[in-house]
Design a protein around this nucleic acid. Sequence first.
DNA 1: GCCAACGTTGGC
DNA 2: GCCAACGTTGGC
Length: 158
Amino acid sequence: MARRFWLLKSDPETFGWEDLLKSPRKTTAWDGVRNYQARNLLRDEIRVGDGVLFYHSQSAPPAVVGTAEVVRAGYPDPTQFDARSKYRDADSDPAEPRWYAVDIRAGRELDRPVTLPEMREAPGLESMVLLRRGSRLSVQPVTAAEWKIVLALAGRPG
DNA sequence: GCCAACGTTGGC
DNA sequence: GCCAACGTTGGC
């Protein structure tokens, strides 16, 4: 299976690139995702070694700020069973967990953020899921070509 | 803060 | 199964 690429959205107020860098081994569980389409990607598609574009939403401007690597493929999101977690889902059956997480490790910080308006202008990114009208999916597929273009926009080849 | 777009819920 | 109401996301 060839390496694939993804874009993960995060509100930096909640958990941003800096938080990832400060995490033990620069690794974090990507948990708390509560959308079925995103869940399916986490559970079924994302594999160890896949590349991640780390995107800051809700920031001015929104931007891809770094890359990460998947270091653990989909596993049941523990927060769904954690009574103290705001992500708890009392309806999820441990025998058949509803929500999944992956682990990611920081790769490298981009030399400069690649902003949303910049991506909208970039040739080759026209079909990027992120740029679709009303696109709110927090876990998105990225093509190999899009991955390269975004990193090239940051000033270094991918 | 506003609001468009989207997903989920629940009455019927 | 339909669809209105509601809550959330996220760009601006």
